[in-house]
Design a protein around this nucleic acid. Sequence first.
RNA 1: GGGAGUUUAGCUCAGUUGGCUAGAGCAUCUGCCUUACAAGCAGAGGGUCAUAGGUUCGAGUCCUAUAACUCCCACCA
Length: 803
Amino acid sequence: MLDKKYNFLEKEKKWQDYWQEKQIFKFDKNSKKPVYAIDTPPPTVNGKIHMGHLSSYMHIETMARHHRMKGENVFFPLGFDDNGLPTERYVEKKYNKRAFELDREKFTDMCLETTKELEKEFHALYKSAGFSCDLDNNYSSISKRSQAISQKSFIELYKKGLIYHQEAPALWCTECRTAVAQSELENQDIASTFNYIKFFIEGTNEYVTVATTRPEMLPACDCVFINPKDEKNLYLLGKKLVVPYFNFTVPVLTDELVDLEKGSGVVMCCTFGDTVDKEWQRKHNLEIKEAFNNAGRMTKLAGEFEGMKIKDARLAIIEKLKENDLLIKQEELTHAVSTHERCGTPIEIVVKKQWFIDVLSHKQELYDAGMKLNWHPETMRARYLNWVENLQWNWCISRQRYYGVPFPVWYCKHCGKVHVADESELPVNPLSKLPTVKCECGECDWEPEHDVMDTWATSSLTPQISTDLITGKGLDDTMIPMSLRPNAHDNIRVWDFYTIVKSLYHFGKLPWTDLMISGYVTSADGSKLSKKSGNNKNAPQDIIAQYSADVTRYWANNLSLGKDTCFSLESFDAGKKLANKIWNASKFVLSFLYDYTPRQIDLLPMDKWILEKYKKVFKSFAKNLDRYDICLGLGEAEKFFWDFCDDYIELVKRRLYNPDVYGEKECESAKYACYYTLLGILKMFAPFMPHITEEIYQDYYAEKENQVSIHVSGYLNLGEAKDENFVKAGDEVMQIVSGIRQFKSENKISLKTFIKDLKVSSKYKDFIKLCEVDIKAVGSINNLEVEDGDFKLEFGEIIPDAE
RNA sequence: GGGAGUUUAGCUCAGUUGGCUAGAGCAUCUGCCUUACAAGCAGAGGGUCAUAGGUUCGAGUCCUAUAACUCCCACCA
């Protein structure tokens, strides 16, 4: 028997423990069932999960449980992305220490310890949310196994010539003191000044005006460009200009990229103020001058400004220009500046030897991959394609950091040749073990690579890392493509893109068939929730404790895929109501079924009608979920359930209560329909509200159906709906009931107040006649007369209630 | 500048390949303690589906233009 009230705190915990104990969600290696493999997003371990992450995981959950209910062998691993810069930054903040101030090993230990703590919290949260990941199949991106796979990927791509080591301009963060990739950039509007300064023509008193936002780059000035079509400035060609204040001369060159409209049409080129400078340096083979170092401090080149921070030097230099009458005017402006997403520091371009994965020469293949994948929602395809089209940098995978997967690489100190590790020795830390083989040059003196890999160089291998848990084959494509890659839209250009790159480069295959892209949950003011910013008032664990995991899941699954939504507690009320209703309706229906075992009998029309309706609804429900139209599927199940309660149960409850008045057979017919309709409904709700449905199922159905859990019991498929007319006729009966209710409401009388006569006109006369008893019972009608015709109700006298 | 999304009831949002009278929750109003549920039930009011054109027998849905808001990318001289 079900409790009078459903205590979710107690029950949810109970079933979570039960599922774990019975290993309900374990992937079955030996099964012949179709595999549904999910490339679970391993959360970056750098803080707390918020409602946005949680909602995204709840979408995944629904799909995992849906496919399990369809009888598929669901592979739903659990992962953590716990290496790399995000974690380092988190640890640096937590201990208020910079990594480069600490011993490398000590810092790594601090990272490992911190991630362990955080992962425990994540685990607890996952469990309390009722996640059905396979706890035995979990991975972490810093584990030895992941490192080995990641290093093997590096070696393979290096040998294929897709990875190269080169001294080339790379995006650089002076705060984190490392190279970063294009995908780690963020735009920020930053207030600045446009400075018009004087470049004197050598040996004259004439000057040209050059506008710049970065006067601190003057010491690194290589030349000045004009547009070859810019007639008013052509006279400058062949002349030398004096760099103001720093007093060295530079040539005047021409290039089509110079914008005639902007500033004075005369541009200074430095190494490197922006991406155009980078282009010009390459194209015109200009000298590379470093005005600042890796930590963002001015170099010797800057003379008296040496040691100053970039920003301070800018102001100091402007002051000097002013003092020396070299500054003509200043204009305030706000412009978008590329900053590092982890710390918000403006990104510089710095030349240093870095490891790159070539993506620019494979743009077309990468684009085609985006065309072949199934995106849910479809509009997200455009975001991917847009990103690929706009790629400008090869993927820089080396980071001048500490906590990450090391490169399996040493350099010969004599000839500089690269030596990569043998695959048999992976994972390897080049710092702790030098090769014993001789270099081709004959020497045996190796320098280990100190850099570590970008965190994405490893997490782009989650399909391989996770399926390795099953196959044990490491970097392998046996289970590739997986069925689903789920993530939020911010990760399309990062995780999705890089995973596609790796899968194509290694196997020439797509990593998955489908992508499910969630939107953001924003706070009430529309700002994005993030682990970094503090707008995290509604912590997931608090919400779950207050509303239950089931209700939270209901909320999440009502969000449209790919769409950003404001977080609001109001929307939890509907879920609360639904859970309450499921409980009460089940309690009521089951109270008639405890001594009942279903057997095939002839059903009364309305009992057949509800089963026919179920067939129709279920078919469409399953179709919607198969298409990742989660909220449509849920909505359908919900609508059907509510109709089942308010219409069907109301209609037959007198038959259930009083078999002596309405007949044993009539009662059994209702029981049969109730048994299967409720079962079907519970199963449809099971992916969304796994706990409450399990509690009800275990109370009654588990034994009857001989199943260990509703979640592996399969959907109730009663076959095709046959007779459309039959459904329509039943609907017309419900319309009569509805008409009776409306009549009573308008007359402000109780629903149980009797009406003497009701005359019904309908084209389903015969069907309605068969339902006479039900209609009279639910409507408290004494006499019912039915005739052929267009739908019409005529009410007779109201019989006052007896005192 | 390139790309995408959004605009539907007072509020938050559904609305699938175009198809009966555009739906739900919340809020408002009316009635009902009906042998599951008052955290309930029954009913009512509330919409020129952003605007203007077009295609079609038929448009919230498709096309064109416009407006407002949001996001992604580029723009750093």
